[in-house]
């Protein structure tokens, strides 16, 4: 059985607070009209939240390399979905 260090409760709570802060930032950005900047900021915040969940809640920070490869494969396939779909959406008109 593969074992890895489990983060302390404090870490989980801090990550949760971080996620809430990022959520509030997303909410706040809705009140500041920045055009395409809003989308950019919100996507950046979404990526940051994903990374917090992946590394801390899913324990990938300390996981066995096979698990990291499996998770990376998931993102790679997501990149295929988005990338090849964009060959249509960004060249349609």
């Amino acid at each position: 059985m593969i074992t890895h260090p489990v983060p302390a409760i404090r870490t989980y709570v801090l990550v949760w607070v971080g996620l809430i802060v990022l959520l509030l930032l997303t909410l706040g950005s809705a009140f500041i009209p920045l055009g395409w900047g809003n989308a950019a900021i919100n996507l950046a915040i979404a990526v940051a939240k994903s990374l917090l969940v992946i590394f801390f809640y899913m324990h990938l920070r300390s996981a066995h390399y096979v698990l990291r490869i499996a998770a990376t494969a998931g993102f790679f396939w997501l990149a295929i979905l988005l990338g090849l779909s964009l060959t249509d959406f960004v060249t349609r008109y």
């Binding site: 396939w77 090849l84 060959t87 249509d88 060249t91 008109y93």
Partner: peptide, 17 residues
């Protein structure tokens, strides 16, 4: 995984795609 767009050639996808 890389070929799905061939179901959509006449659906309005771009020529490049």
């Amino acid at each position: 995984f890389l070929v799905w767009g061939h179901h959509m050639f006449v659906a309005g996808t771009s020529v490049y795609s």
